[in-house]
Amino acid sequence: MGFKLLSKLLVYLTASIMAIASPLAFSVDSSGEYPTVSEIPVGEVRLYQIADGVWSHIATQSFDGAVYPSNGLIVRDGDELLLIDTAWGAKNTAALLAEIEKQIGLPVTRAVSTHFHDDRVGGVDVLRAAGVATYASPSTRRLAEVEGNEIPTHSLEGLSSSGDAVRFGPVELFYPGAAHSTDNLIVYVPSASVLYGGCAIYELSRTSAGNVADADLAEWPTSIERIQQHYPEAQFVIPGHGLPGGLDLLKHTTNVVKAHTNRSVVE
Rank of each mutant, 00 (worst) to 15 (best):
176 P>S: 03
111 A>S: 15
125 D>E: 12
88 W>Q: 00
227 I>D: 02
209 A>E: 08
119 D>E: 02
167 R>Q: 09
29 D>W: 07
234 A>C: 05
174 F>I: 04
31 S>Y: 05
44 E>Y: 09
114 T>W: 02
190 P>A: 05
35 P>S: 07
148 G>N: 07
113 S>E: 04
87 A>P: 13
240 G>K: 03
136 A>C: 14
188 Y>M: 06
162 S>A: 14
191 S>K: 07
33 E>L: 10
231 Y>D: 00
177 G>F: 00
203 E>T: 15
141 R>M: 12
53 G>I: 11
260 H>M: 15
221 P>G: 13
261 T>L: 15
56 S>M: 15
115 H>M: 00
75 V>E: 02
138 P>W: 14
262 N>T: 06
48 Y>H: 07
201 I>V: 08
110 R>Q: 14
181 S>M: 01
101 E>T: 10
154 H>I: 15
136 A>L: 03
221 P>K: 14
34 Y>F: 06
102 K>Q: 13
173 L>Y: 02
175 Y>V: 03
114 T>R: 01
60 T>R: 11
254 T>G: 11
156 L>G: 02
118 D>P: 10
39 E>W: 11
266 V>M: 07
84 I>F: 14
74 I>V: 09
25 A>N: 05
231 Y>S: 02
226 R>W: 04
88 W>L: 00
64 D>M: 14
10 L>V: 07
121 V>C: 11
83 L>C: 03
87 A>K: 00
40 I>C: 07
255 N>Y: 15
169 G>K: 03
119 D>G: 02
147 E>A: 14
126 V>H: 06
129 A>H: 15
173 L>N: 03
243 L>F: 12
108 V>E: 02
252 H>S: 06
175 Y>L: 04
130 A>L: 14
171 V>I: 09
217 L>P: 06
37 V>H: 05
137 S>V: 06
232 P>M: 10
237 V>P: 01
89 G>P: 04
191 S>L: 06
192 A>N: 10
39 E>I: 07
163 G>F: 08
173 L>M: 06
236 F>K: 05
15 A>R: 08
253 T>K: 00
263 R>V: 10
57 H>M: 01
174 F>V: 04
170 P>C: 04
235 Q>L: 09
227 I>M: 15
255 N>F: 09
130 A>Q: 15
207 T>A: 09
66 A>P: 10
125 D>Y: 10
87 A>L: 03
131 G>P: 04
140 T>L: 03
245 G>H: 04
243 L>H: 10
12 Y>G: 11
96 L>N: 00
197 G>V: 04
172 E>I: 08
152 P>D: 02
50 I>N: 04
41 P>Q: 06
243 L>Y: 06
156 L>C: 02
36 T>I: 08
85 D>F: 00
197 G>R: 01
77 D>T: 06
118 D>N: 05
43 G>F: 12
256 V>Y: 03
144 A>R: 14
202 Y>S: 13
189 V>C: 01
66 A>D: 09
105 G>F: 09
38 S>I: 09
13 L>I: 14
144 A>G: 08
184 N>P: 01
93 T>M: 04
22 S>C: 10
227 I>F: 04
45 V>W: 02
241 H>M: 00
225 E>W: 07
161 S>T: 10
120 R>D: 04
50 I>L: 10
183 D>C: 00
203 E>G: 10
